[in-house]
Amino acid sequence: MAAVTPKIRSRKDGAAVPLDDFDKRLLNQMQGSFPIVPRPYAEVATALGVAEDVVLRRVAELIEQRIIRQVTPIFDTRALGYKSMLVAAKVDAEHPWRPAKIINEHPGVSHNYLRNHEFNMWFTVAVEPDSELGLDGTLDVLQALTGAESVRQLPTLKLFKIRMDLDMSGDTAALAKAAEAVAPAETEPQPYDETDRAVIRATQGDLPVVSEPYADAARELGMPVAQLVEHLEGMVERRLLRRVAAILFHRRAGFSANGMGVWKVPEDRILEAGGRMAAFRGISHCYERPTYGDWPYQLFTMAHGRSKEECDAILDAVQEEVGCIEDRATLYSSTEFKKVRLLYFTDSFKRWEREHAGV
């Protein structure tokens, strides 16, 4: 297979759309502090010191301008019993779009990127709790369909952090600042019932940008808005729902680079190092994953910056703070093939397995 080096998006600002101070404050609020209440935009407006209609109008404009991707509930895949993992595949470096299209057609693939490495296609895939194929069988089918030379399964062994929340106002120093270390999070499936499934089906996907965004879902479910909101709050407590938030188009919001820092550390320092890495504001994801003979890195971190140089600064600060690094590599994405929120409890998963594996 011919080796190629994909173009890394590194120019300062990239495709970013200019944002003023109010936009930045609004986006920070929408990402990190969007409340689960009957009228969330009114509370966002109060926090920003403006009228509710100002917030509603500007959020709608930011969606139209493709700065906000969607405002949506973020349900916890693992807590719902779905099996998921990160996968690194070695596909034809000269013609990656064909395998990308095949991978993207699986309803459990939420992210798929081309990265600057011999293992050049990186994607996350999930399957339903009652999947006939399971993850192993699904990956066997995808490898056969794409002609991937090699596939590396990289499931989560420990989850230290998963929170995609871009700091619109912080500078490089703020993003590269260490904070208190964090403990690994729970990743075990949690119990849920048919009411939970119905609530997820009714609320997942794009929430309407209106004063009462849960009103339509509440009517569909035959319950008052206040009862639906209370149920969603309970789902947060039960770890089925992580939060409701705005998801951004990174590059148009000014974050034109993302670097996956992978780290080899002494086995007896993994827990300590992972917790310290996860504490950095500029790190959105931090996991422990398995190693292979050709892949010695146990810890994975995602850094997001306004340039490649800012990502490098964040990862350099992580290395200096942690101090026990035996080896490090940084993989930059050159193409985003897919980025969506999963839709749960639909017939799309079983349909894909019937069409591609006859089960």
Rank of each mutant, 00 (worst) to 15 (best):
Q143R: 13
L48M: 07
P99L: 09
V59E: 00
A100P: 08
I74R: 13
N104A: 04
P73Y: 15
S110D: 11
I103Y: 03
H111N: 07
Y113L: 02
A60N: 02
L56V: 05
H117L: 01
E61Q: 00
V44H: 11
P107S: 07
V151D: 06
A93E: 14
R98H: 14
R69D: 09
R152L: 10
P96T: 05
P73E: 14
D53F: 07
G81C: 09
Q153H: 07
G134L: 09
P99R: 10
L142E: 07
T156C: 04
Q70M: 07
I103A: 00
P96K: 06
T46Y: 15
N104R: 02
E128N: 06
P107R: 09
L139T: 13
Y41K: 03
E61K: 00
E94F: 14
V127D: 00
N116D: 03
V109K: 01
V109N: 01
K90N: 11
L86Y: 09
V151Y: 02
A88M: 12
Y113S: 01
L135F: 03
P129V: 05
D92I: 13
P73A: 15
Q143C: 07
L154I: 02
Y41Q: 04
S84M: 12
L86W: 08
E132T: 13
V141A: 10
V54I: 06
L48R: 08
R98E: 14
V125S: 01
A47S: 14
E43Q: 15
W97I: 11
R98F: 13
D92N: 15
S131V: 04
V71S: 01
G147H: 04
E64R: 13
T146C: 02
P96H: 04
T72S: 15
G137S: 13
V55G: 03
E132R: 14
L48N: 06
I63M: 08
T72C: 12
V71Y: 03
A88E: 09
D130L: 09
E118I: 02
L133D: 10
Q65S: 10
F119P: 05
S84I: 10
H117M: 00
A144W: 15
R115F: 04
Q65T: 11
A51G: 13
T138N: 06
G147E: 07
E43I: 14
P155F: 03
R69P: 02
L154S: 00
F119D: 07
P155E: 03
Y82F: 10
E43A: 14
V141Q: 12
A89L: 08
E128H: 06
Q70N: 08
V91N: 11
V55H: 03
I102T: 13
Y41V: 03
A93M: 14
T46F: 15
A148W: 07
A47K: 15
V54M: 03
D53E: 10
I74S: 10
F75I: 04
A100R: 05
A89Q: 08
